Amino acid sequence: MFDVREDPGADVRDPEAVERALSGVDAVCHQAAMVGLGDGISDAAEYVSRNDLGTAVLLAAMAKAGVGHLVLAGSMAVYGEGRYTCPRHGSVRPGPRSVADLDAGRFEPVCPACGDDLSPAPVDEDVPADPRNVYAATKLAQEHLAAAWARCTGGSAVSLRYHNVYGPGMPRDTPYAGVAALFRSALARGEAPRVFEDGRQLRDFVHVRDVAAANATALEAEAAPGVLTAYNTGSGEPHTVGEMARALAVAHGGPEPVVTGEYRLGDVRHITADSSRLRAALGWRPEIGFEEGMTEFARAGMREA
């Protein structure tokens, strides 16, 4: 275990510390990253340093030590908006939503060809990447670095593209966390969760224990040498952000969520997972359903950021 929370000197950007941590290791599960939207573009240098420089240092040390298998904590954020279908034009990829539309409360993307309403659908791993914020861009860069390492060394790399992970032990009161942690932090303070846009954004909320099981499975499974293989890691059970906020509030016994109409430019409207590749290739299955997981999370403790 190489964890800055346990050892303040355990910085993945420190080549000597990473080399020491790799002694006697034959595979690496790389979770270290700066997550969330943070403070926007002002955090860009820190995101790149922690996520991409840190990954480059790790990969160089792995090559030096002859460690040949990597499991990377990837992210669904690399896709940008999810998959959509238009009744007239089939599968389409809408561009970033405009400030004017968001200010007017027009949150749903429309068909870029005809302007008609779209129907969201799960994304698979073949959807082209289109990161829409700094964090997403650094997560895609991590995959490119890992793929380059695999080609150069003959090692095997797996990226588990996590969807919205939640569960006990999430950090409290920090913008560098997912929406589940923000809502749970508000409830811990006795406040109503503040739901942005209209609360109808679709996400795939996957429990942290299921994600841990996916990592363990990927560490032990045979992987193709010389390439990076990406797998969506989601529950397969889409819910809206508003539904998640209400489930937490009810289970916690806290105030009803407030839908604010606010927005963040880096957010996408809908993104849900098609995790069939991971299920078929590695035999992984999520075990914890939405209601069970949210009830546990609503009553579990959080850690200091």
Rank of each mutant, 00 (worst) to 15 (best):
R5Q: 08
E6G: 14
A10M: 12
D11F: 15
D11T: 14
D11M: 15
D11Q: 14
D14N: 15
P15H: 13
E16M: 05
E16S: 06
A17G: 15
E19F: 05
S23T: 15
S23V: 15
S23D: 14
V25K: 02
D26I: 04
V28S: 04
V28N: 05
H30Q: 06
G38E: 05
D39C: 11
D39M: 12
G40C: 09
G40V: 07
S42M: 08
D43Q: 10
V48A: 14
V48K: 05
R50N: 15
D52E: 15
L53M: 14
G54E: 08
A56V: 09
A65W: 07
V71F: 10
V71Y: 07
Y84N: 04
Y84L: 02
T85I: 12
T85C: 10
T85H: 08
P87A: 15
G90F: 07
G90P: 04
G90M: 12
V92S: 13
P94I: 02
R97V: 10
L102F: 06
G105K: 02
A113Q: 12
D116W: 06
L118D: 12
S119M: 11
S119Y: 07
P122M: 04
V123A: 13
D124T: 10
D126W: 12
D126V: 15
P131H: 02
N133C: 07
A136C: 10
K139Y: 00
E143K: 03
E143F: 04
L145Q: 14
A146V: 06
A147N: 09
T153S: 12
G155L: 09
L160G: 01
Y162Q: 13
N164Q: 05
Y166N: 00
P168M: 08
G169K: 03
M170H: 08
P171N: 13
D173G: 02
P175V: 08
Y176L: 14
V179D: 00
A180L: 01
A180D: 02
A181D: 07
F183C: 02
E191M: 08
F196W: 11
E197T: 12
R200C: 09
R203K: 06
R203T: 00
F205I: 02
F205G: 00
V208F: 08
D210E: 13
V211Q: 06
A213M: 11
A214H: 04
A214F: 03
A216K: 02
A218K: 03
A223S: 10
A224Y: 07
G226I: 12
T229H: 02
T229Y: 02
G234Q: 05
S235K: 01
G236R: 07
E237M: 09
H239A: 09
T240A: 09
V241D: 00
E243F: 03
A245M: 01
L248E: 00
A249M: 01
A251Q: 03
H252L: 01
G254D: 04
G254C: 02
P255W: 00
P255R: 00
P257W: 04
V258C: 05
T260Y: 09
T260D: 13
G261T: 03
Y263D: 12
R264D: 14
R269H: 05
R269M: 01
H270E: 10
I271L: 14
D274E: 09
S275D: 00
R277F: 11
R277Y: 08
R277T: 11
A280N: 11
L282R: 01
R285F: 01
R285S: 06
E287C: 09
E291S: 11
M294A: 02
F297A: 07
F297P: 00
E304S: 15
